[in-house]
Design a protein around this nucleic acid. Structure first.
Length: 491
RNA sequence: GGCAUCGUGGCCGAGUGGCUAGGCUCAGCUCUGCAAAAGCUGCUACAGCGGUUCGAAUCCGCUCGAUGCCUCCA
């Protein structure tokens, strides 16, 4: 276990708190996953990448982490009252597919995209449909506690009654009185006692294909229930970290707290973490408003928003240049700026293998390493970490030019730390895959051209040397003349 | 309407009582056959108005503007 004090911003207390896991060396973390009725868009991805960083850093610190992220495949109530519909079912009708066929298709898409982003798979990825029994059991317990009631085959959580002994609204900072005062008039009639109540179990209408038997008849689970069922099943009634997008804070996470407290009499989560939204044109990316971009369309460049394609790793790097709790706006200019910085970072990383060592170091490497950890320990501040990595880039470039020096021991430490943060913690990937066979072939070919060009230059055949250089540049291969010869990078 | 968050230099984005991000862009210099790359130098910002303080981008109040949630949403 690395001896560093980690601080996490807890949405519940609205403060940064020292992180102390329930069990000394193990961490339980639950993150609300995607609803698989359509392709994940880039905004969805930001949240999962934010928590991939958390997962990776906790593991890097030496914790044994059980990371549970659900797949919502059961569909939920879309609207209140009679207009209620299940998005998965809806999609199934449109595409003439079995509901589980839709689920399968978009689950595969989700996994493909996350793999392209080099996000680690969670330890457990449970599905809502696989935990119907557990969900029914929780409903029964809440009814036993007297905090839920059945009406016409549906079961609702009694928020007002719960609030008599508990605090409903503590996560989102809402007062129940305000909520009552601001209740909108609903045209549709409802079985709820109060508008604040939410469904735990919903009766299935005849046309509703996704349905399961329950003590209250054929139906399906309410939309907050699966997370309570699956988080407590795999992590216990009280666990360390619960994450999700900011937009889930209310009502979803508020309801999760209520459900868990109602049936387990304990606060379910010690640290609530919320990742902020990715915006496009200053507005939240959202399927329903059609303001979004699909990851695949940005990797291929097949979109009207960006000037060029961007790789998954550059996209991720761009996201990590902003803090996870800040809103991040998405634009071609910002992406291009990140891409250039990213390439410089990777060039410097490759250059680390060509450094000559000296007796002494002209930079205090240990302090620099500490600064990197300090950044991450301050609520996973990746932008600060990246700023420090760029300081290292400057230093490495100067080493290459022999304007600075480094000892063998410090070089080892520098290399190790850069590797750790770049690849283990940030989970970035070098686009010039030097390990792959194709990469080796490319390197061999370009190096031959570099030799030919240098021969031409020696013979003052600048027409030829410039032709080689410019033709390669136009293909995205940039030659760089340095003190000890020529290297290249891909743009 | 209610609850919350935010407004930082040409752009993107950290910071959150005194030192001072970082990336991209731009200008000059060094290097170079010329470039590019790299390095060096330069560009000093915190929406507005009050207040607290020896001192505020940072705390408090108000104003303006934006966003999120209150309905499915990461």
């Amino acid at each position: 276990m690395k001896q560093h004090e980690l601080f996490i911003y807890n949405s519940l207390s609205k403060k940064k708190e020292k992180f102390t896991p329930i069990h000394k060396d193990a961490v339980g973390m639950y993150v609300c996953g995607p609803t698989v009725y359509s392709n994940v868009h880039l905004g969805n991805c930001r949240t999962f990448l934010s928590f991939d960083l958390v997962f990776r850093y906790l593991k890097h610190l030496g914790y044994k982490v059980r990371y549970v992220r659900n797949i919502t495949d059961a569909g939920h109530l879309e609207n209140d009252g009679e207009s209620g519909d299940d998005p998965i079912l809806k999609k199934a009708r449109i595409e003439q597919l079995e509901p589980m066929e839709v689920v399968q298709k978009y689950t595969v898409d989700f996994h493909t995209i996350m793999a392209k982003f080099n996000a680690l798979p969670p330890s457990i990825e449970p599905t809502a449909t696989g935990h119907i029994y557990e969900q029914i059991h929780i409903v029964e317990k809440i009814i036993e506690e007297g905090l839920a009631y059945e009406k016409n085959g549906s079961v609702y959580f009694d928020v007002l009654k719960f609030n008599e002994t508990n605090n409903y609204g503590k996560l989102s900072g809402r007062q129940i009185e305000d909520m009552i005062a601001n209740t909108r008039e609903l045209a549709a009639q409802t079985d709820k006692k109060n508008p604040q109540d939410f469904a735990l179990w919903k009766k299935a209408e005849p046309q509703h294909i996704m349905r399961w038997p329950s003590p209250w008849g054929m139906g399906f689970p309410g939309w907050h229930l699966e997370c309570t069922a699956m988080s407590t099943k795999y992590l216990g009634n009280n666990f360390d970290i619960h994450g999700g997008g900011m937009d889930l804070k209310f009502p979803h996470h508020e309801c999760e707290i209520a459900q868990a407290e109602a049936c387990n009499h304990t606060s379910p989560v010690n640290y609530w973490m919320h990742a902020n939204m990715l915006t496009l044109n200053g507005k939240k990316m959202s399927k329903s408003t059609r303001n979004f971009i699909l990851p695949m369309d940005m990797f291929t460049g097949d979109n009207d928003i960006l000037s060029k394609p961007f790789s998954p790793t550059v996209t991720k790097f761009f996201m990590y240049q902003a803090h996870y709790r800040s809103i991040l706006d998405f634009s071609s200019e910002a992406l291009e700026a990140s891409e250039k910085g990213f390439n410089r970072l990777m060039d410097a990383h490759r250059m680390l293998n060509e450094i000559t060592i000296s007796e002494k170091s002209t930079l205090d490497i240990k302090s620099w390493v500490k600064a990197c950890y300090d950044a991450m320990n301050d609520d996973f501040n990746s932008p600060i970490l990246i700023a420090h990595l760029f300081e290292a880039v400057k230093f490495v470039n100067s080493l290459k030019e022999e304007k600075e020096t480094i000892s063998a021991e410090d070089l080892e430490l520098l290399k190790q730390t850069i590797d750790d943060f770049l690849f283990d913690v940030l989970g970035l990937e070098d686009n010039v895959s030097e390990n792959s066979q194709d990469g080796e072939k490319l390197t061999a070919a370009v190096e031959l051209l570099i030799q030919l060009r240098n021969t031409a230059r020696a013979n003052k055949d600048f027409a030829m040397s410039d032709k080689i250089r410019d033709e390669l540049a136009s293909k995205g291969i940039q030659l760089k003349d340095g003190k000890d010869g020529t290297t290249f990078s891909l743009n």
